[in-house]
């Protein structure tokens, strides 16, 4: 991992208008950076705005304020986007939470995996689209006999592997995964996370991994950001965050992780977190090297 910054999110703000007067502030002045080859975990409870961040990063939503620099290109700027459209669309890939809805039920697996290549008119390096799909499937641990199946005939874990194969077929430099394991069984979750770790080591892509399961984040990620109500409360390297959590919300989240030791598990206490109303909206401050906390 070098220190080149691949993705730089600056003061990102996004609301969803409900009526003319009222809007939901899904993401509120959020900044973080993703270095090349790094796995950055974004955690937070459901509704904290994680998916909105992912969709802004992928240009699916236009943020109301802030900038997102990818390789130094401001992707929210229409002109810059148009100029680099092809590069942006091929080198950034998104994996959704629910593979049942992110794969078209009426397409065969080989067509799903080859779809990005067809869209971008890329000649597959292994001759045919089918051969390329078979190769990618082998890569993510799927049997080539699935090539002609339709998604409803596969299990959740297999479908998520298809989605991963589709994303990796483009050799992305940035992979964004929005809770890719949340809809899977626990044993399958571990398999998929292992697969991610393996693929990341192999390909070296940068990885924005969104989750609300802290155990998986601890295993997979290099750095972690904790989100709450659209804001980042704490950003730190994984080990540092899990050893020395500073923000009370982080402490509360960590206290909710089950411990695989019955004695300690019974002694585990949940630390509740209540945001004091009217508390000042903290800005991130570096307390120790690379460890930022909102104060």
């Amino acid at each position: 991992m070098d220190n080149e910054i691949l993705l730089d999110v600056q003061h990102l703000t996004h609301f969803f208008p409900i009526t003319k007067k009222i809007a939901v502030k899904a993401v509120d002045d959020l900044s973080f950076q993703l270095r090349r080859g790094e796995i950055f975990g974004l955690v937070g409870e459901s509704g904290s705005g994680k998916s909105t961040v992912a969709r802004c990063v992928m240009n699916l939503y236009r943020p109301q304020a802030g900038r997102i620099l990818y390789k130094g290109i401001d992707t929210c700027d229409r002109r810059a986007f148009r100029k680099n459209r092809r590069m942006l669309q091929t080198t950034r890939q998104l994996i959704f939470q629910d593979s049942a809805s992110s794969l078209n039920q009426r397409m065969r697996v080989c067509d799903i995996i080859a779809e990005p290549m067809r869209i971008q008119h890329i000649t597959p390096p292994r001759g045919t689209h089918r051969a390329e799909a078979a190769f990618q499937m082998h890569y993510v641990g799927l049997d080539p006999s699935f090539l002609d199946r339709y998604p409803p005939e596969l299990s959740g874990g297999q479908r998520q592997r298809v989605a991963i194969a589709r994303a990796l077929a483009m050799e992305p430099e940035l992979l964004v995964a929005d809770e890719p394991i949340a809809s899977l069984d626990v044993s399958i979750q571990a398999q998929i996370v292992n697969l991610f770790k393996h693929l990341q080591q192999e390909h070296g892509f940068s990885f924005l991994f969104i989750a609300h399961d802290l155990a998986m984040v601890e295993f997979l990620c290099d750095r972690v950001g904790v989100m709450y109500h659209g804001r980042l409360l704490e950003v730190a390297p994984t080990e540092e965050l899990f050893q020395h959590p500073l923000h009370p919300y982080t402490k509360s989240l960590l206290s909710a992780i089950p411990i695989p030791d019955p004695v300690r598990e019974r002694a585990r206490k949940l630390i509740p977190y209540e945001e004091e109303p009217g508390a000042p909206r903290g800005t991130l401050r570096e307390v120790s090297p690379d460890h930022f906390v909102a104060e």
């Binding site: 699916l60 092809r86 629910d98 992110s102 039920q105 483009m170």
Partner: peptide, 25 residues
């Protein structure tokens, strides 16, 4: 639906999405 969003983020144009995703459904 997410597969249409996915196709759009991969750069699929209107007719690609119409032909591959919408019409079959």
């Amino acid at each position: 639906s997410e597969y249409v969003v996915a196709a759009r983020s991969m750069g699929g144009g209107f007719f690609h999405i119409l032909w591959r995703h919408l019409i079959p459904n």
